[in-house]
């Protein structure tokens, strides 16, 4: 096992990318005070929409577009319910996750007459950035990846900086911290929550598309397999600092990539499947132990 090979870095990044998109979706929702646990179902829907559209058009980018747009529409339920009508976002999310699980399986049966998984001949996945191959380091890390992989990283940085340095970013942060205060200054709080929730849906569309057309070229029932929950955990981990998301998600990616390698040397798949969850829980616990100590120390010093 050669952990420090660039190919391993590439594998980590590949595994982490869907979670990166989804965790950015969760993080911006958290910034406006919407506890978004609908990521799992939205990502699943996005994955299905991407495969379906790519299959019908023969163009994987049409798949990405369909995933992004239709998942944003999918997010309307949460956006309208939680932002406009003040309904419980947790219950809506549980319902919409279940709905996504059902409707993707249902449509797979109705549209393609298959169950379990769908990977027909003629389903085109996203192209890899082969042209990077000759560039040192970058080629090894990104050469085998889709363009969505660097896009995820760039988006996180852009959104993170946008939050910090633009008037709208400032307003957005205020909306989540103290909605009444923002409203008293004429900020349309439900409006921010609504559009951010929709944008989060679009990001989950990217996450799904990368999953079903980038990481693999297939749609399988419940293929997100808990990645949306890992993303929620990553959001908790960075506690309002989206720029730290890559660190949190790459940890997950590393666990998954390591799992694949361990499977390669004979470790049972069941146990490597559990590793990302175990690591996520452990990291959450460990950071929770350290944070209070640090703040105490810094304040008494």
């Amino acid at each position: 096992m050669h952990v420090f090979e660039l190919s391993f870095v590439a594998a980590v990044l590949l595994a982490a990318t869907p979670v990166l998109f989804a965790s950015l979706a969760g993080a911006i929702s958290a910034q406006v005070g919407v506890f978004n646990i609908a990521l799992e179902g939205q990502m699943l829907w996005g994955a299905f929409a991407a495969v379906a559209a790519s299959y019908y058009t023969g163009n994987p980018w049409a798949g990405v577009l369909a995933a992004v747009v239709s998942t944003a529409v999918f997010a309307l339920v949460l956006a309208v319910g939680a932002a406009r009508w003040k309904a419980d976002p947790i219950v809506i999310a549980i319902g919409s996750n279940l709905f996504a699980l059902g409707i993707t399986g249902f449509l797979m049966g109705v549209l393609f007459d298959v169950s379990g998984s769908f990977s027909p001949r003629g389903l085109v996945g996203l192209p890899k950035m082969q042209w990077l191959h000759d560039v040192p380091v970058l080629g090894a890390v990104f050469g085998g990846q889709t363009a969505l992989v660097p896009l995820a990283l760039v988006l996180i940085v852009v959104v993170g900086l946008w939050l910090l340095f633009t008037p709208h970013g400032l307003r957005l942060r205020g909306v989540g911290e103290h909605p009444e205060a923002a409203a008293s200054l004429g900020i349309n709080v439900p409006g921010y929550q609504f559009w951010v929730t929709i944008a989060a849906g679009a990001l989950c569309g990217f996450a799904g598309a990368q999953l079903s057309l980038g990481n693999v070229t297939v749609f399988t029932e419940n293929m997100t397999a808990g990645r949306g929950w890992i993303a929620v955990a990553a959001v908790m981990l960075v506690a309002g600092r989206p720029l730290w998301l890559p660190l949190a998600c790459l940890g997950f990616g590393a666990a998954e990539a390591l799992g694949f390698r361990l499977q390669g040397v004979g470790a049972p798949q069941q146990l490597t499947d559990a590793a990302p969850y175990l690591i996520t829980i452990l990291v959450l616990v460990l950071t929770r132990i350290r944070i209070p100590r640090r703040t105490k120390a810094s304040l008494t010093a």
Binding site: G81, D88, V91, I92, I94, G95, F99, I103
Partner: peptide, 10 residues
């Protein structure tokens, strides 16, 4: 099931 839950939330 999903629809029932969402409607209940709303």
């Amino acid at each position: 099931q999903g629809v029932v839950i969402v409607v209940l939330a709303l």
